[in-house]
């Protein structure tokens, strides 16, 4: 039985299209970790707010633990009665309350002894037990984030929602906290949805990733599927770098200017398609009379990212180990060897 279900949910702020959230459906089992990924303005935060009840959908339903909390013609259940936890981008810790009091804030229905025990447990769990009597302004950004998670988890919500929870933190702190929070959510078997525009973040934490664009859910799948088998050109481009190369399907495979690709989807011969090439699909060999040339390169630490210009003028990117270096201007022979050939109808 799914714990959280969105059925055809739409939300409009303005009369003009596109809607902020457009006919979005998804479902989550207990313990799932779902990342909503997309550029700013794609509707991912609105989706989170619709689940929390800070906004009401114009169409569709939100179902949490078998209870329809919004839609289906009834008055929406207010946020305080939905049993969802929310971790805000700005933490939103109450400045007039200590860490302990912040965590206790949502435990107002529990009796004293039970509440004290719960506060102690949860502060231990997120690793801020020593900070219990501090005020939020006395904490570092990372500590505030931990307290925010503790506060949201304390009432044991059925779903935890996190809105870009790590975006306010320094890069090195972000990595550490990300791992800690992910471990915590798995250990407590918390069902959680978090919103991010950082694909690395989505990939490292989530079981499944939903890619949103203009309010539409373009793909919802495991991280490796989203990367290797993008469902739409938008997903291909947004998740990892991608170049699109036109090709024609023949009996021998898909013929492109960089070679003949396999045709695993058994597309009918004669169709025009666009195939997706990622930098790690493309390699090259220096050769004096070759048609392509290295026009630029960027050092990326463990690898070089080369920009290659083909004889046709089309540019492709290729990432190569940084042990060897090929200078710009070198003529090269391009080889393409995709692990997964992804093609879309040309158009």
């Amino acid at each position: 039985m799914p714990l959280l279900r969105l059925v055809g949910v739409s939300k409009r702020y303005r009369r003009e299209p596109p809607p902020a959230v457009d006919d979005l459906s998804l479902s989550m089992e207990e313990g799932d970790l779902l990342a909503l990924l997309g550029p700013s303005g794609c509707g991912k935060t609105t989706t989170l707010r619709l689940i929390a009840g800070f906004e009401d959908p114009d169409e569709g339903q939100v179902v949490i633990a078998d209870r329809t909390v919004a839609g289906a013609g009834r008055a929406a259940v207010p946020p305080e009665q939905r049993g969802v936890g929310f971790v805000f981008q700005d933490h939103a810790l109450f400045p007039h309350l200590t860490v302990e009091e912040n965590v206790a804030f949502g435990l107002h229905r529990q009796n004293g002894a039970h509440r004290r025990a719960r506060i102690g447990d949860i502060l231990d769990l997120v690793g801020v037990a020593t900070l219990a009597s501090r005020y939020p302004h006395e904490l570092s950004g990372g500590q505030q984030q931990r307290v925010a998670v503790a506060r949201a988890l304390a009432p044991a919500p059925s779903v935890l929602l996190l809105d870009e929870p790590f975006s306010n933190l320094d890069a090195d702190l972000r990595g550490q906290l990300r791992e800690d929070v992910a471990a915590l959510l798995r250990a407590t078997r918390t069902t959680a949805v978090f919103v991010t525009h950082d694909q690395e973040e989505a990939f490292t934490i989530a079981d499944r990733v939903g890619v949103l664009n203009h309010g539409r859910l373009e793909q919802l799948a495991a991280p490796e599927t989203v990367y290797h088998r993008p469902a739409t050109p938008f997903v291909a481009q947004f998740v990892g770098a991608a170049e699109f190369v036109p090709g024609v399907v023949t009996a021998a495979g898909i013929v492109t200017e960089v070679g003949v690709m396999p045709n695993p989807d058994a597309l009918a011969a004669g169709r025009s398609v666009t195939i997706v090439l990622r930098p790690d699909d493309v390699s090259f060999e220096p050769r004096v009379d070759a048609g392509a040339v290295v026009v630029d390169r960027q050092f990326r630490g463990s690898e070089w990212l080369y920009c290659l210009e083909l004889a046709s003028g089309r540019r492709l990117y290729s990432s190569q180990s940084s042990t060897a270096t090929v200078p710009a201007g070198t003529r090269v022979e391009v080889r393409v060897d995709p692990v997964h050939v992804v093609s879309f109808p040309a158009g």
């Binding site: 305080e80 049993g83 109450f94 949502g106 107002h108 009432p155």
Partner: peptide, 24 residues
């Protein structure tokens, strides 16, 4: 977000005024 945080922690409008807004 303070209002929303309070609501998401199961606290209604009047109690939010009393517990969050008035002290601040």
């Amino acid at each position: 977000t303070f209002d929303e945080a309070s609501h998401s922690l199961g606290v209604g409008t009047t109690a939010t005024l009393r517990r969050v807004h008035l002290p601040l």
